[in-house]
Design a binder for these strands. Structure first.
Lengths: 179, 179
DNA sequence: GCGGTCATGTAAACAGTTACATGATTGT
DNA sequence: ACAATCATGTAACTGTTTACATGACCGC
């Protein structure tokens, strides 16, 4: 149940309501870390309050409920951060497709593997641009937050995909009938 | 619904029963591509048969049902392989934790980031060993299949985690209050 | 007043995990 | 005979997605 900890982490940053949390999850986490819609977030906030990990600290102008993290919540967040990584089953469609390549005939394999590598390359280049923009917009020696972390991770991730796709293609060209 | 396509891909390789499929998903896909238990696989096979993508091609000695992929199934597999990647929401607990690092105090950040980088490094080294073993066990110029693909991906993936974790730590040390 | 965004919720459907359940075959 | 493995299923539960639903506030 990592959604709970994602919310705890965002609330630890600053108290906010469910609407803001929904946007922040979408903007800062949904790329590579976690994702959830408002219909999952509102009930979870209630449960977290019931469990004493979060509490309503303020009521916004439009009757919105601003949640903050409690001491117990902060303790739980830290406990989770230091707990052993629960090897959640990996699910990655890109990787799955590359594994399944050998079910196609060689011409198809070539076209598809190159297509996938090129798509990853385009994403990597785009993220490199994003990074440049972020770096330029923030004075040196200043912190630049989640956005920079995410972009850097994304760039490395898409480069990995691109390079691995090309490597798989090489293997299949050398020895068409793998496995 | 990628489980269906994972099964289609495995069946395209060779017809087999649900029990074998369960083991192959666990052994070859569950690391980085996809995962599912037998309780998900058996009903899905029935549905695939009902949809005309797979069919029982043989009955094994113990009354097992050996499924094979139909022409429609092969067409569907190919269609899926070439269809645009549905950006399934990324969920990665490792990445999530590194994003949440700034909720800890600096000494904790140092300890945890180093711990995580070291853990990833150990996994990368282990996979490098696995790769060496695979390469040694297969004569050169022979195909080496899924296992080698997976190990190579895993090694690159854990190296990415290791390097990115160390980079994040650097950023946080330079400017403690990110975001 | 009207459209956009803020703001919160519930319900139904689907996907995935864990637990329960059963029985046949093979090797010792 | 017994244990391990082969083999297939269902049920209950949890987590996630999509759709439905409502209303307040703000700027024009």
């Amino acid at each position: 149940m990592s959604l709970r900890h994602a919310l705890l982490g965002l609330l630890a940053d600053s108290p906010q309501n469910g609407y803001d949390l929904t946007r922040r999850v979408e903007e800062t986490l949904s790329g590579y870390a976690w994702s959830a819609g408002h219909s999952q977030i509102y009930p979870e906030l209630k449960r977290m309050a019931a469990d004493g990990l979060a509490e309503v600290v303020d009521e916004g102008s439009r009757g919105s409920k601003v949640y903050g993290v409690t001491d117990a919540g902060r303790a739980e967040l830290r406990r989770w951060m230091f707990s052993p990584l629960s090897e959640a089953p990996a699910r990655n469609e890109f990787v799955l497709r590359l594994f399944m390549l050998s079910s196609l005939d060689l011409p198809d394999v070539r076209v598809l593997a190159e297509q996938m590598a090129d798509a990853s390359d385009r994403e990597a280049v785009e993220l490199a641009d994003t990074i440049k923009m972020i770096e330029d917009s923030v004075p040196p020696d200043q912190p630049h937050g989640y956005a920079r972390f995410a972009a850097e991770f994304g760039r490395r991730w898409f480069e990995l995909q691109r390079d691995w796709a090309r490597w798989v293609l090489e293997q299949l060209e050398q020895a068409p009938r793998a496995d």
